[in-house]
Amino acid sequence: METILQLLALTAVIAGTFFSVVGMLGFVRLPDVYTRLHATGKVGVFGVVLLLVAAAAWTPLGWGRAILLIILLMVAGPVTSHALASAAFRIGLHMKQPVRDDLRPDKAP
């Protein structure tokens, strides 16, 4: 049991770190606000969830607290992305090279 938990924690830490790093990489590489929010808001949250799983398996955090935190993150993550995207649209930051734009049909290619 100890070994299994240790293995789980190890894999979760490695995968969580990987996804957090990829989230930051996406933040740098992607072209505009909306695509960058995809990287931080999704990959980032997924990475933190994996790190929480690792913490629950291998530290005295406990599964109850970890699951509550995961649920809170899953509720808060998309709401943050949406709030930032909506704010960006309202102050007039628009997509770079859109394929289609239903919000501004006149500007689409």
Binding site: L25, Y34, T35, V43, D101, D102, L103
Partner: peptide
């Protein structure tokens, strides 16, 4: 993100 060509076709749909 990890793809060197960055294959995205962003758009907004209703």
């Amino acid at each position: 993100v990890l793809d060197p060509k960055l294959p995205i076709q962003p758009g907004i749909i209703a």
